Each structure stands twice: as C-alpha cells, then as structure tokens.
Simulated assay, not measured.
Amino acid sequence: MTSHRMPAGSDPARPGPDHPLTIWVDGEPVPGTAGQTIAGVLLGAGRRQWRTTSQDGAPRGVFCGIGVCFDCVVEVNGLRDVRACLRRAQDGDVVARQGAGPEATP
C-alpha cells in the first residue's frame, strides 16, 4: 500500500480560526484553544502530571488518552473523578489536581 500525498494548499481539511480559552488549574490561568480536552490544554502548557496515586503518591497524567485507564482524573468545577482526556475544556473551567499525596493539594 502506498500513501497518497497532496500539496498542503489543496487539502480540503483546513483548520479554522483559533478560539482561545483559559482554564484555571490550581489557581493559575492556563491558555488553550476551543475543542481541546483538558488533558490537551495541560499537555500544551507543558504539564505532564496532575494526579498522584493513593498508594504511594506516584505522579500520573495521561496514559491511555482514550478514557480507559483513569490515570488522568482531575476535579473540574468541583466535580471529582473527571477524566481529563475525555472532557473538552470550557472557558473558565476550574481544574484541581486530585490524589492522596501532599502535592495534590492546590
């Protein structure tokens, strides 16, 4: 099987204009773009971990990226156990780390 390549200018799937948004993570503003998941916004901001395990306080972030593993859970607008890889970010969302370790407290 060979790939079909087309010039970028003739690709019908063109991105639209960006619609910026800001979520608040542990009291800090984090910029993103409409359509991104919370995990996408966090990863785009350079954050690779935002939860700790209850047993040994090990850091966690995105593992599977499809909502199967629960490694990326956060608290969003007061609701716990939200999978950051599935939840689309909304402008003004308040996100807090979740976990048992001392670094999980905002």
Results as ranks from 00 to 15, higher is better:
Gly46Tyr: 02
Gly9Glu: 12
Pro29Leu: 06
Gly67Ala: 06
Ser54Gln: 14
Asp91Val: 10
Ala39Ile: 00
Gly9Ser: 13
Leu79Tyr: 09
Val76Gly: 03
Pro31Lys: 07
Thr53Ile: 05
Trp24Leu: 03
Pro17Lys: 08
Gly65Met: 03
Asn77Arg: 13
Ala58Gly: 12
Ala104Pro: 04
Asp91Thr: 08
Cys64Leu: 08
Trp24His: 11
Asp26Asn: 11
Asn77Ser: 14
Ser54Pro: 11
Arg88Ser: 10
Leu21Ala: 02
Cys69Leu: 08
Val62Cys: 02
Pro106Asp: 14
Val82Pro: 08
Ser10Thr: 11
Val25Gly: 02
Leu42Ala: 02
Arg51Gly: 08
His4Lys: 14
Cys64Ile: 07
Pro12Arg: 06
Cys72Pro: 00
Arg51His: 09
Gly92Ile: 07
Pro29Ala: 12
Gly67Met: 05
Glu28Trp: 08
Val95Thr: 07
Glu103Val: 15
Arg48Glu: 15
Ala96Glu: 15
Ala45Thr: 00
Asp56Leu: 15
Asn77Trp: 08
Thr2Met: 12
Gln90Pro: 06
Phe63Ala: 10
Glu28Thr: 06
Gln55Pro: 02
Val41Ile: 11
Pro15Ala: 07
Val30Pro: 01
Val30Asn: 02
Glu75Leu: 08
Gly9Gln: 09
Arg14Glu: 09
Gly65Ile: 02
Gly92His: 10
Ile23Gly: 00
Asp11Ser: 11
Gln98Asp: 09
Cys85Phe: 04
Pro20Met: 05
Phe70Ile: 10
Phe70Ala: 15
Met1Glu: 11
Glu103Tyr: 13
Glu103Arg: 15
Pro29Tyr: 07
Pro7His: 10
Ala39Phe: 00
Thr37His: 04
Asp91Arg: 07
Thr22Ile: 12
His4Tyr: 12
Ala39Ser: 03
Asp56Glu: 14
Gly46Met: 07
Cys69Ala: 04
Pro102Val: 09
Ala39Gln: 00
His19Tyr: 04
Ala8Phe: 11
Arg83Tyr: 09
Gln36Arg: 01
Phe70Gln: 15
Arg5Phe: 14
Ala89Pro: 01
Cys72His: 03
Pro20Lys: 04
Val41Thr: 05
Gly101Ile: 06
Ala13Phe: 14
Cys85Val: 06
Val62Gly: 00
Gly57Tyr: 06
Gly27Cys: 02
Arg14Gln: 14
Phe70Gly: 09
Val74His: 01
Val95Glu: 03
Met1Ile: 10
Ser3Gln: 12
Pro7Thr: 08
Pro31Thr: 07
Arg88Tyr: 05
Gly92Thr: 06
Gln90Arg: 15
Pro15Gly: 05
Phe70Arg: 11
Pro59Arg: 12
Trp50Cys: 01
Ala58Arg: 15
Ala8Arg: 12
Thr22Cys: 04
Pro12Glu: 08
Glu103Met: 14
Gly78Asn: 10
Gly27Met: 04
Val62Asn: 01
Cys69Trp: 02
Glu28Ala: 09
Ala84Asp: 00
Ala104Trp: 11
Gln90Ser: 13
Phe63Trp: 09
Arg14His: 09
Gly78Ile: 03
Glu28Asn: 08
Ile38Phe: 02
Arg87Ala: 13
Asp11Phe: 12
Leu21Gly: 09
Pro12Trp: 05
Gln98Gly: 08
Pro29Gly: 01
Thr53Asp: 14
Gly32Asn: 01
Asp56Asn: 14
